[in-house]
Write a protein that binds this DNA or RNA. Sequence first.
DNA 1: AAATTAATCAACCGCCCAGTT
DNA 2: GAACTGGGCGGTTGATTAATT
Length: 266
Amino acid sequence: MLKQNQAAVFKKKVGETTDNRQMKMMQDEIRKGPWTEQEDILLINFVHLFGDRRWDFIAKVSGLNRTGKSCRLRWVNYLHPGLKRGKMTPQEEKLVLELHEKWGNRWSRIARKLPGRTDNEIKNYWRTHMRKKAQQKKRDISPSSSSSTNSCSESNITATVNSSPFPEPEGATFYDTGGHPDQSSAVKNGSSTEAVQGGEKGYSFEDIWKDIENESSIEPNQGCNFSCPSIASPVWDYCSDTLWKMDEEEGKMFLPYEYGTLFLTG
DNA sequence: AAATTAATCAACCGCCCAGTT
DNA sequence: GAACTGGGCGGTTGATTAATT
């Protein structure tokens, strides 16, 4: 992360997009690329003050020179106190696969069922996983290939996915097709998949939930809770020690409460 | 030990939708 | 009802790290 931070760049927005909404930012220099710790701390402060909804406002008021979207993404994917980090547990893997089978690439929706995991994380996981699977399949098809030596979780996964065989045309993996070929249109039409939420599969989600909850004290849909005791994000480790101290020591560096008073009281 | 390849993850982009004016 | 705006979502990219040759 810190190495990436060194490479953070400013980019001119001019000529980069035709999105009208971004045209107004053209006169500004919008910071892009990896976030620095200072930015993280600043963002945390302002989310603390204004909540995790008004991203454009936070982006402006904080002086981050980031877009609201960028702030939101950073918060949701990295800074949110409820985030669980580290490898997916077998239970989580199983749940992801089960839900993906039901809902396709509805990552945010799937993520809501996995407390502490983000849509981005699940998406990345799935991408990696399906790439592996595609490669595995190639090896299986190849006559010179030897038998697979998958891990325990991997074999479970394969079994689950294979319960509903998906087409994997040459050159396009299952992931590339978005899971279910007919899913995207249904989703676009808003008819989506609420109806299939019942979970008619032969295995119990409650069991999975029990397992997951045993491993993590995080409640589903917990939301933003700043008394959060189980902060997993690296910056929170840092913040818990130094953030509020810095406010005092470095004086008006962030000015969170002054801003807060100013804007909250109108 | 160096080079190459694969895996992982953070971040951006563009589209869409819902709410507001 | 049309235009505008903010936020959410899925897809994609690029940088970094780990594993392999």
